[in-house]
């Protein structure tokens, strides 16, 4: 294998504010290979969505990408790429789906109008060919009677169907990379399962790599190959799903996993991470997790710990990781 589909290095994103710049994403690095699913997890405000938007080149002023940041898609640098070139990539090699499918869909246009436009924007084909493509794409995401559906408006669809149309559009051009930001969070488990199974199927056919943003660790467990856990704008641990979910090194990952209700914990109190998610404007010095961390010592209040490599291709940023969990699967 040559290079990964997506390689993010030292990505930082900050937003100007009255109290000075807020760093929403702080020096994160990760990569995703062809056909691979990376789960990006963390609590509200940890920087997951901003990371996804940065990959798509959708950070608008006052947002700023940090100086040393690099985002490479198939080896090609996206940071600093002129907007018209980025636009050519988006929708073709690079696609994104959002929690609210109406972010993608236009409520006042018929589905066929929107889909045909999405096809012809990137390919020089006749309207008839584009319509056929649209029809086929709807069928692939499991929408019954696609011909009829093409003539409908978004409001005539259920939430789950709207999300499927958004996915069909995102995957029209067999993108190399799909960034999915909580696309199933607002949906029922049954519809979530349908959508995930359709995306899995499509990705395995096309080799599309995926970054799947979610706060739901259980979804990541069933869907992703690797996982990156974010806290206060940093990736605090990343590695294979098995390693991170079964043997977390980082105390935050450890706490997060312990707080999910699961079979073997029924009826007993869940592990609790004390305190609450810090606001970015008032991050504590040093490791930002220290006020909530049961393992914190003085050193944690000094500097953020560096990312350290562990067996099995894992990394964690912590002075006192759960080393009993170090052995890779």
């Amino acid at each position: 294998m040559s290079h990964p589909v997506l390689e993010v290095k030292n990505l930082s994103v900050s937003f100007g504010s009255r109290e000075g710049a807020l760093t929403a994403v702080n020096d994160i690095s990760f990569h995703v290979d062809r056909g691979e699913v990376l789960g990006l997890v963390g609590e509200s405000g940890s920087g997951k969505s901003v990371t996804g938007l940065a990959i798509l080149g959708l950070i608008d002023a006052p947002g700023r990408i940090g100086a040393n940041s690099s985002i490479r898609l198939d080896g090609q640098e996206l940071v600093g790429m002129p907007e018209h070139e980025l636009r050519r990539l988006r929708g073709r090699k690079l696609a994104m789906i959002f929690q609210d499918p109406m972010t993608t869909l236009n409520p006042v246009l018929r589905i066929d109008t929107q889909m045909i436009e999405a096809v012809t924007a990137h390919e020089n084909v006749s309207e008839r060919a584009a319509r056929a493509r649209a029809r086929e794409a709807l069928q692939r995401v499991g929408i019954p009677s696609p011909d009829e559906r093409l003539l409908a408006y978004p409001h005539q669809f259920s939430g789950g169907m709207r999300q499927r149309v958004a996915i069909a559009i995102a995957l029209l051009h067999r993108p190399a990379l799909l960034v999915a930001d909580e696309p199933t969070t607002a949906l029922d488990v049954t519809i979530q399962a349908q959508i995930i199974s359709e995306v899995q199927e499509l990705a395995s056919q096309t080799g599309t790599a995926m970054v799947w943003v979610t706060h739901d660790l259980s979804v990541v467990a069933g869907l992703a190959d690797r996982v990156a856990v974010m806290y206060a704008g940093r990736i605090v641990e990343q590695g294979s799903v098995v390693d991170v979910l079964e043997r977390p090194l980082h105390p935050y990952a450890h706490g997060l996993i312990g707080s999910v209700p699961s079979r073997n914990k029924r009826g007993s109190p869940l592990a609790q991470i004390p305190g609450m998610t810090p606001s970015l404007g008032r991050l504590p010095p040093g490791c930002a997790f220290h006020p909530r961390c049961p393992r914190a010592t003085d050193i944690c209040r000094g500097e953020w710990p560096e990312a350290t490599a562990y067996p099995g291709g894992r990394t964690a940023r912590c002075y006192h990781p759960h080393l009993e969990n170090e052995v890779a699967a």
């Binding site: 488990v189 979530q192 399962a193 660790l217 467990a221 992703a224 190959d225 799903v241 999910v260 079979r263």
Partner: peptide, 9 residues
Amino acid sequence: EVPRLEARK
């Protein structure tokens, strides 16, 4: 359909 922490890919 319930996603579970114990489930793997």
